[in-house]
Design a protein around this nucleic acid. Structure first.
Length: 672
DNA sequence: CGATTATTAAACAATC
DNA sequence: TGATTGTTTAATAATC
């Protein structure tokens, strides 16, 4: 124990190395200690890799942003729990316990002290569906509030318009026309705002929240997470355009800034004191919305009371205004003393809570079903998945954003749906090889949960080696430059959008270390390829002798065989899509899986009988198209032949087999 | 418990 | 010159 804790503390130090230290509250607890210990040597701060750290600085924005927002989502959930808990406990301690026991959500846990929970703990306590449900509710609530808010603003606008008309004594037609136009535009834009916000809420952690947090330290963030009224502020907020993220949003946000400000100015509430102070409140009065002039009081009284807010009593059905807390307490004691009426109201409140909980359960069930539906069949034409992959190059920075996909499947739970609880132990490093093993072929699992990993800051349960291999094999020509590999990582995994120095180093390390990765020189530089034989060789030793080995070998063999045909069949269809320059994505995700049956196999050496490099039989259609459309095809071609690679459908005949078989024939070997 | 593998950190050289 | 790319060594944790 001591050791662990020690290592933990130490570990935090290196995290700072990323400069981004701040946010790297580092929930991930990536290394579960491991390397940290090595920190003993740490003294000198990485001369070169520190430089890499700098680069991480650059990337921090989108990536860390994402991470951060996820945290916020958790925070929201946490608050929700807190409120539920307090809502239950405060009104009447009498029956609250029974009520609590009834719930499916571990309210009991929540009652302990949700605030103390770390995101990880939250993740553990709440199953993803539950969390999701919580978030949904929260969102629904906020939406409601938001809509009311905007409705009010619209009314105000109407009013304003009317008064202007009257006051202005029938301004000339065109003037009026203009005004109306402007007005309509405002309405329109307000609607846009609404939608925008809605979207944001839906994506919850995935997108926006841009402006402020860039500039501000994160302390401000946690609370800012949701309050709808904050939005105008955000928009106004001199929009720190720093973020590369989310073009559309940014853009829209900019548009809106102007109008937003005007709109708000109509509606009065000065930016600093939003009319409604708090989101939340499952229990009660969304009425909070009413813009209060004297926001002064509401500004949290030092020792606030859960039933007191906005200068008024929040006891159900009672909105008595109280100047200060003292007065409120007095009011509470007189008006809501322990009597029949109060207890009855308390009971009602409990029922409300119960109802909510039931609803929550239902919603979470529904969510689960939805997720099951969406994730269980990767082959299905992903409705939304056009995003990303703008072809290797620089795609990554925004990889996380746009996908409408995120809108739909967005915040996804914190655990890959496909996996059991196994893989995630909160910070647990992915080193669990268990999952990496045969039991879950990287490709299929990746395919299944690929959306998840893309958006959730969760460490994928695969080894670096298998990931690298996957990246390489996914490309048409089975070769990638180091940088492209990096990009693949960042594109495919939210997790790898942070701590770049660390994992990039690991990637390089793995490339060098494992024989299965072969570096091929190019005119333009070097690319990395996979020597499948080596790769397969690598695994068996690990589990040598184990009874499972045999089993696995067998299964893998059959799997491989099956897969071969499957792959062959798919080769023609999916590949082109994959490669096709223009469209990219839609295929990418789905095509991804058939591609590599990867890890599964690991049949010792059974497959490629040929020790030598002779191109094995296989090779049916393989890549007739090969097209390295990718852009930056340059290097690809180089390797084998300077000529325009595109043409020859059948490369095999083309060149000197030797070097090429190295990479090209790989697919074959895999298959058979 | 020892061997193996994976991860992380870090130093360093070569190259861009 | 600084950044990137590769190699290598070491410490540590997890697994078998």
């Amino acid at each position: 124990m001591m050791v662990e804790s020690a290592s933990e503390t130490i570990r935090s130090a290196p995290s700072g190395q990323n400069g981004v230290g701040s946010l790297s509250g580092q929930a991930d607890g990536s290394g579960s200690g491991s390397g940290a210990g090595a920190a003993g040597t740490a003294g000198g701060g990485a001369g070169r890799d520190a430089a890499a750290g700098a680069d991480s600085n650059g990337e921090m924005s989108p990536a860390d942003l994402l991470h951060f927002q996820q945290q916020q989502a958790l925070q929201v959930a946490r608050q929700f729990l807190l409120q539920q808990a307090s809502g239950l406990s405060s009104p009447g301690n009498n029956d609250s316990k029974q009520a609590a026991s009834a719930v499916q959500v571990p309210v009991s846990v929540a009652m302990m002290s949700p605030q103390m929970l770390t995101p990880q703990q939250m993740q553990q306590i709440l199953s993803p569906p539950q969390l999701q449900a919580l978030l949904q509710q929260q969102q629904a609530l906020m939406l409601q509030q938001l809509q009311e808010y905007y409705k009010k603003q619209q009314e105000q606008l109407h009013l304003q318009l009317l008064t202007q008309q009257q006051a202005g004594k029938q301004p000339p037609k065109e003037a009026l026309g203009n005004k109306q136009l402007a007005f309509q535009q405002q309405l329109l834009q307000m609607q846009q705002l609404q939608q925008q916000h809605l979207l944001n809420l839906q994506r919850q952690g995935l997108v926006s929240l841009q402006p402020n947090q860039a500039s501000g330290p994160l302390q401000t963030l946690p609370q800012a997470a949701v309050c709808p009224t904050d939005l105008p502020q955000l928009w106004k907020g001199e929009g720190a355009p720093g973020q590369p993220a989310e073009d559309s949003v940014k853009q829209e946000g900019l548009d809106l800034t102007g109008t937003a400000t005007t709109a708000t100015s109509f509606a009065a509430p000065p930016k600093v004191s939003p009319p409604l102070s708090h989101h939340t409140l499952p229990n009660g009065q969304p009425t909070v919305l009413t813009p209060r002039r004297d926001s002064s009081s509401h500004e949290e009284t030092p020792s606030s009371h859960p039933l007191y807010g906005h200068g008024e009593c929040k006891w159900p059905g009672c909105e008595t205004l109280c100047e200060d807390l003292g007065q409120f307490i007095k009011h509470l004691n007189t008006e809501h003393a322990l009597d029949d009426r109060s207890t009855a109201q308390c009971r009602v409140q409990m029922q409300v809570v119960q109802q909510l909980e039931i609803q929550l359960a239902k919603e979470s069930e529904r969510l689960q079903a939805m997720m099951a539906h969406l994730h269980m069949r990767p082959s299905e034409p992903k409705p939304f998945s056009q995003p990303v992959t703008v072809s290797a190059a620089d795609s990554f920075p925004d990889g996380l954003v746009h996908p409408p996909t995120s809108a739909a499947a967005p915040v996804t739970p914190l655990r890959p749906p496909g996996l059991g609880s196994a893989s995630l132990h909160s910070g647990g490093p992915a080193r669990r090889r268990s999952s990496d093993k045969f039991c879950s072929p990287i490709s299929s699992e990746l395919a299944q949960n690929h959306e998840f990993y893309k958006n959730a800051d969760v460490r994928p349960p695969f080894t670096y080696a298998s990931l690298i291999r996957q990246a390489i094999l996914e490309t048409p020509d089975r070769q990638l430059t180091l940088n492209e590999i990096y990009n693949w990582f960042t594109r495919m995994f939210a997790y790898f959008r942070r701590n770049t120095a660390t994992w990039k180093n690991a990637v390089r390390h793995n490339l060098s270390l494992h024989k299965c990765f072969v570096r091929v020189e190019n005119v333009k530089g070097a690319v990395w390829t996979v020597d499948e034989r080596e790769y397969q060789k690598r695994r068996p030793p690990k589990m040598t002798g184990s009874p499972t080995l045999v089993k696995n070998m067998i299964s893998s063999l059959s799997y491989g065989a099956l897969n071969a045909s499957y792959q062959a069949a798919l080769a023609e269809s999916s590949f082109p899509i994959l490669n096709s320059p223009g469209m990219l994505n839609p295929g990418s995700t789905s095509s991804l899986l058939p591609l590599s049956h990867d890890d599964v196999g690991a049949p010792g050496e059974p497959l490629p009988s040929n020790g030598s490099s002779s191109p094995p039989r296989l090779s049916p259609p393989q890549y007739s198209h090969q097209v390295q459309v990718k852009e930056e095809p340059a290097e690809a071609e180089e390797d084998r032949r300077p000529g325009p690679a595109l043409g020859p459908p059948n490369p095999s005949t083309a060149g000197p087999a030797e070097d090429r078989d190295l990479e090209e024939e790989l697919p074959g070997e895999e298959l058979s």
